[in-house]
Amino acid sequence: MSIVENFDLYAPRLIDKEEYFSAGHRACQGCGEALAIRLMCKALGKDTVVVNATGCMEVISTMYPTTAWNLPWIHVAFPNAAAVAAGVEAGLKVMRRKGRIPDRDVKTVAIGGDGGTFDIGFQALSGTMERGHDVLYVCFDNEAYMNTGIQRSGATPFGASTTTAPAGVASSGKGQWKKNITEIMVAHNVPYVATACHSYPIDFMNKVKKARSIKGPSFIHCLSVCPTGWRVPSAHAIKMGRLAVETGIFPLYEVEEGKYRMTYRPERIRPVEDYIKGQGRFRHLSPDELTAIQKRITLEYNKLLDKVDNLHSWGELQD
């Protein structure tokens, strides 16, 4: 397998050369989230409005009087990206209907970090998905509140040391498992839900394109490596994403009208240790804890494979 998935080795040269998320943004060195946004924008193209939750990406991209965005962009607050997006979508829809803007499809895309999606923005997200707005929501999950200084979120994995769930003599970091946001979104019965990672850029961009083309709500959960918060060298950002996928910790799949499909299936699942040992946030974990994590990851992965093998699409179920 080549280094860029098993796609065409020269695939990167075929993607849109336009940079909709321009250089000069203030993200940390090796920021996986900034990379993921750059790729997402390329897949979306120019007929897009971006609604940003408060977080790293908002702060690093739009220090007045400048902006890194080459797309129409709005930020209102932390918990409401999905609700603002619902308003933007409704506004564009009604104005198009009334002939006040050109009659062409402009997609509203909401983006937020894990805090703005799993935790504080969860209610607004659920509402927007339930109401069926034509909105794509992309969660860039770097597994903690990185913007405020690496605090634990509902997306932080078990055992990770954060500034509010630190490892110490009486603690092994976060004591709870990561919330399964993807499954919660699937349970909203929206037409398209997928996981993705910037380390598999073509896979991610294909999913963004697919979600963009679907009328109605869609959700992409994009694992985004944060070298600063994960305590890994910035050069390892891509490698860490790849290891998350290859160890089965973050499987790449999509759920289209209820039908599960693995979009990348490693031939051999690597032990979770390969992923965990390179990261400072897991440095304190004992062999027993590692075994517990391995057990849980294997269970979750098998649960997913079971769904891939046994669940049918809505269309198939109608008959």
């Binding site: 860029v4 990167p12 040269r13 993607i15 050369k17 940079e19 998320f21 321009s22 250089a23 000069g24 943004h25 993200a27 060195q29 090796g30 920021c31 996986g32 900034a34 990379l35 750059r38 790729l39 910037h198 850029p201 070298p227 060298p233 910035s234 050069a235 950002a237 891509i238």
Partner: peptide, 30 residues
Amino acid sequence: CYIFCPEGCISQNKNGYFEADLDYCKGCGI
């Protein structure tokens, strides 16, 4: 290198080779 650059500061020169715009390259090493 072009696809994985978080800054989007790597581009192809006229000979088809890639290079980084050092005005923006943060030196992450990806």
